[in-house]
Amino acid sequence: MPGITREEVAHLARLSRLELQAEELDHFAEQLDVIIGAVARVSEVAGQDVPPTSHPLPLTNVMRADEVRPSLTPEQALSGAPAAEEQRFRVPQILGED
């Protein structure tokens, strides 16, 4: 199985929104390489005709009736907000869309 490079770790950090420091990148790349080397053993079963289990319970169709339940008050909803304005969550400028 292939190992993991520093560049890959940097890419994964961007995907997962972690502003890693340079030393961290080096350190994680080293450790993750070892970890991935160890866990890659699972691919021994990749070819086997075994159904995947994503969940330990054999439940299906768990649903709720379309009935309104009490919401939080706006004060409660906003109680943990780092910043709020006009009863909304205030966040820094958003990039990307538009």
């Binding site: 199985m1 699972v42 691919s43 990749a46 075994v50 159904p51 995947p52 289990t53 994503s54």
Partner: peptide, 16 residues
């Protein structure tokens, strides 16, 4: 996904 997460889920079946 297939090699790692997918395989891990198969292992889960084998363990069960």
């Amino acid at each position: 996904y297939d090699a790692y997460y997918g395989s891990a889920q198969k292992v889960r079946t084998l363990i069960s």
